[in-house]
Amino acid sequence: MATLTQRYANPTRFMALSGRLLPWISVAAALTIAWGLVLAFNVPPDYQQGHTVKIMFIHVPCAWLASMVYAVIALSSAGLLVFRHPLAEVSAKTAAPIGAAFTLLALVTGALWGKPTWGTYWVWDARLTSVLILFFLYLGLIALRSSIDDEALAGKLTAVLAIVGIVLLPIIKFSVDWWWTLHQSSTRLTSTIDPVFRAPLWVMALGFLLLFAALHLKAMRNELLRRRVKALTLVAVERSGGAPAPKLAV
């Protein structure tokens, strides 16, 4: 019996399923984020931070996604190298720009939040520096893939870098415990956050997770379309009497 991943290894089947799911996930993401924003802008000011606590409701989901998307890339890369799953490479490739965007947002919102809270936009502390390295790692994955014309080779080399880079995720997670940092320790959602702030944070986190799912599905569909256009362009070139050009960039 085929597993779920084997069943949807067929890009055509994936396109059909994702085409049905994408509108629902997109609407769910929009509604959940809208609900989260209503909750976020109706919380009372924090006794220490005042209204700047509202930044938490976008900064924390972005920071969580920064690491989570990288884990998706690493898992997809393993799927490519170990199981040669045809969609794994598409997943890894398309998640990288989205992960870079969320990491950039975590850095920018964190820096802006830092000014009123810590008195500075930036310090070279362990958490901030490790997330900055994660951002550069995302850029490195994108640059490495773009620099190699052979897509299969580019996919494999990028997958190796992605798997090596996963060592950064526990460093980011435990940096606030291993080193004395300006950044606060890990938030324990059930004990260290007042319930009045917990609900909007959970709702926004769920909304951002759905948003990532929608963006990733759409990006994967685009990538499959791009490959189909490339394949048909090669057929057109052959038909017009040109020599087959398997490495033609489209």
């Binding site: 005042g50 209204h51 700047t52 509202k54 930044i55 976008i58 900064h59 972005c62 947002l105 920018v108 919102t109 802006l112 939040w113 000014k115 009123p116």
Partner: peptide
């Protein structure tokens, strides 16, 4: 700090 809060939401 309204400017900082709005700048964060605008950036996102």
């Amino acid at each position: 700090h309204a400017g900082v809060i709005l700048a964060c939401y605008a950036a996102v």
